[in-house]
Write a protein that binds this DNA or RNA. Structure first.
Length: 397
RNA sequence: GGGGAGAUACCCAAGUGGCCAAAGGGGGCAGACUGUAAAUCUGCUGGCGCACGCCUUCGGGGGUUCAAAUCCUCCUCUCCCCA
């Protein structure tokens, strides 16, 4: 195991907060002296198995621990998933079936492999120890925490203050997560800064069980493509790591200049010095580098290069994409009206929208703007339909 | 247990019998300008072969009325105050 100083240097990078840093140093020292790796835990929600760049921030930190020779443990929160981490919006979720959980876990495994070394990664389901907890057991655990403690959580406090509902079971989420730490005897738990409270409850509960409290290590929350809210699938402002290369590249190019450097910092492994250098480039060039690096990370260099070429072609040079999906449509009589073709090809979500967009000048047929609602695509014609950034090649039969 | 307030479209929020497919804002989409950035400006933002027409939508059911988001009634959910 590397010297503690060296380990700490790596672990501190890109970290938001380490609670308590001195304790982490102590743990590392002991681990090194006894040759016992630390147990480092990260919980994942089983309901949304599509990882996005937001997840990669914490996963890369987990990888750091792994590289430093520690035991990393992924907890699939199949049990806690039934509760749903309190966000104010989410209600109690529909419990997932075992098959769904298994399927999601497999999806995870495949995606996690892009960042972690899966052969050295322990994966656990928290239903293993949470399901057998009796009501009596739950009472015993909840008795260790107080309502005042729960209200320290910002989300609860603000909802309580503004009169929005807090379901009782929502209190149980942090407790269940904390119990995971107890069950594992975790030394460190990772999470985004929004997890700080939950991680701290873990410390409290471990103390109550006379375990050495875990160190809570948090990483910054990555802003989504909108640059404002946190990246999340439900907000639709995310870049999934399993997305096609071209899409990934395009999404990253649409990020704001400010956000771009945030992404350089949190999503790539580039050193601060290099990032400083990139600031001197034309922002567009720098952004292409970002898109290229990230895309290559998940799709390989070749695919990233191709994605960039496509970007230049379609977006910068305003040409039609290299590959456009072809849709065959059935003509009615002489042909099919453009607006109807737009809907049928799945470019517009309704006929009304298609007509509307035509009127607004947002529709092109073979690159030529078409506003006339009467315009018909004749039988046997083959054209490229375009609404904004959506392209489809249409074959009228 | 008692009293009060509330539930409106993706979100916030106005509307308290017809002029309401429902103000305004946010978000989103499209266009202009660009570097598919940001900022700005413009248009649109329930569906229907498009029709000052029809259908669906103001928490859910039932009712009053020529006409209901608006009135009555029951139900479900939420918040506040008192106990």
């Amino acid at each position: 195991m590397r010297p503690v100083d060296e380990q700490m240097a790596r672990l501190r990078r890109g970290t938001a907060e380490i609670i308590v840093e001195a304790e982490l140093i102590q743990k590392l020292q002991r681990a090194r002296a006894t040759g016992t790796p630390l147990k480092v835990k990260l919980g994942l929600d089983p309901t949304a198995p599509d990882l996005h760049l937001g997840h990669t921030v914490v996963l890369q930190k987990l990888r750091d621990f792994q590289d430093l020779g520690h035991q990393i443990i992924i907890i699939i929160g199949d049990f806690t998933g039934m509760i749903g981490d309190p966000t104010g919006r989410s209600e109690t979720r529909r419990p997932l079936s075992w098959d769904e959980i298994r399927a999601n876990a497999e999806t995870y495994r495949a995606q996690l492999g892009k960042i972690l070394e899966m052969t050295r990664t322990r994966v656990e389901f928290n239903s293993t120890w949470l399901s057998p907890l009796t009501f009596e057991g739950v009472i015993r655990e909840t008795a260790h925490l107080t309502v005042a403690q729960m209200l320290q959580r910002e989300d609860f406090a603000s909802r309580y203050a503004s009169g929005r509902p807090i379901s009782l079971h929502e209190f149980l989420y942090p407790i269940a997560q904390a119990y995971d730490s107890v069950a594992l005897g975790a030394d460190v738990e990772l999470g985004g800064t929004d997890q700080t409270f939950n991680l701290l409850v873990g410390r409290d509960l471990q103390r109550a069980h006379e375990q050495e409290p875990q160190v809570a290590l948090t990483v910054p929350i990555l802003e989504g493509l909108d640059g404002a809210q946190k990246m999340s699938k439900s907000l639709g402002n995310y870049v999934g790591i399993a997305e096609p290369a071209a899409e990934m590249f395009g999404k990253l190019m649409s990020v704001s200049d400010t956000l771009m450097f945030r992404y350089f910092e949190l999503v790539t492994r580039i050193s601060p010095e290099e990032i400083a250098g990139l600031r001197r480039l034309h922002p567009m060039e720098a952004k292409k580098r970002l898109a290229r690096i990230v895309t290559a990370q998940y799709h390989g260099e070749a695919a990233a290069a191709e994605a960039e070429a496509e970007f230049v072609r379609v977006i910068q040079n305003r040409q039609a994409p290299e590959i456009i999906e072809t849709v065959a449509l059935v003509a009615e009589g002489e042909g099919i009206p453009v607006w109807k073709a737009l809907t049928a090809a799945g470019i517009a979500s309704s006929n009304s929208e298609a007509r509307r967009k035509m009127g607004e000048g947002g529709v092109r047929v073979d690159g030529e703007r078409v506003i006339d609602l009467e315009r018909v695509l004749g039988r046997g014609s083959q054209v490229v339909l375009q609404l904004g950034r959506r392209f489809k090649r249409v074959l009228v039969k």
